[in-house]
Amino acid sequence: MTLVVLSLMFWAGAWVLNVGLAQSAVTRSRAGRLLVPAIFGITVLVVWEGMVRGLGVSPVILPPPSAVAARIAVSLPTLWADFLQTAVKGALLGYLIGCGAAVLTAIAIDRSPFLQRGLLPVGNFVAALPIVGIAPIMVMWFGFDWQSKAAVVVVMVFFPVLVNTVAGLAASDRMQRDLMATWSASYWQGLFKLRLPAAMPFIFNGLKIASTLALIGAIVAEFFGSPIVGMGFRINASIGQLALDMIWAEIAVAALAGSAFYGLVALIERGVTFWHPSQRH
C-alpha cells in the first residue's frame, strides 16, 4: 500500500513541478521543452512500477518496467536477431523497394494527366484500405521468411508515397514552370531542377507516413507465419507462454526502432528541404 501512496505522491509532485515549469521561462529554451515531457515520461514509468508492485498485479497481466528492463538486458542477442529479421530485412528492404517504386511510378505517369486523374482516386482509395489483410496472401506466395514481409511492406507503403509524390509534382506553380520554359529547359531539366525539388516536402510527408506503416506491416505479417525469429513471431510465441515481459521488451525495441526510423527520415528531410518555410526557425 505504501508503494501505491508513494507513487501517487510522486505523480502529484511531478505534476506540480511540470505546471510550475510550464509557466516559467524555462520552456522558452530548447532544453526546457525536452525537460517537461521527459518528466512526464519518467512519472508514467514510476507510477506504473509503484502500482504494479503496490497492488500486487500478476506479472502475467502487467509486468513492472524494471522486469522488462531486466528482460531486455538478459536477452539482448535474441532481441537483436529479431530486430535484424523484422526491422532490417523485412521493413527496411520493403520500404526502400516500395518507396522507390512509388516515386518512379509517379514520374512515369507524370506526363499523362489522363492516367493521373485515373490513378489518384484509386490510390487514395487503396491508401485507406486495411492493406495488412494481404499478409496471408503474401506469406502464401513468398514463403515464411522475410521476403513475404518485405512484399507486404512494399504494397503498404506504395500508395501513400505515390499519392504524395503526384501531388508534389504538381506543387510548383505556373510562373516557375514558365520561367523554366523561357530558359528553354527540356522536360527532364524542368523535372530535376524545379519540379522534383519542389515536390520534396510532399514526398517526405509520404515517406514519413510510410516509415511508421513499414514496421507495422512487417510485424503483423509475421503473425501469419514466420521462421522462428522475428519480432512478430516472438510476440506471438510469448503470448502462448504468457511471457509478458518478453512482449514488452519487443515493444520497447519496436518503439525505439520506429522512432529512430522516423527520426532518420525527418533528419534527411531537414537536409533536403532546408529551404521550406516549415524547416526555417
Binding site: V132, T212, I216, I219, F223, I239, L244, I251, S259
Partner: peptide, 12 residues
Amino acid sequence: SQTIPILAIAPM
C-alpha cells in the same frame, strides 16, 4: 506514439 507500431501489441 505515432511512430510506434501499436498494432503489434494488439494480440497482447
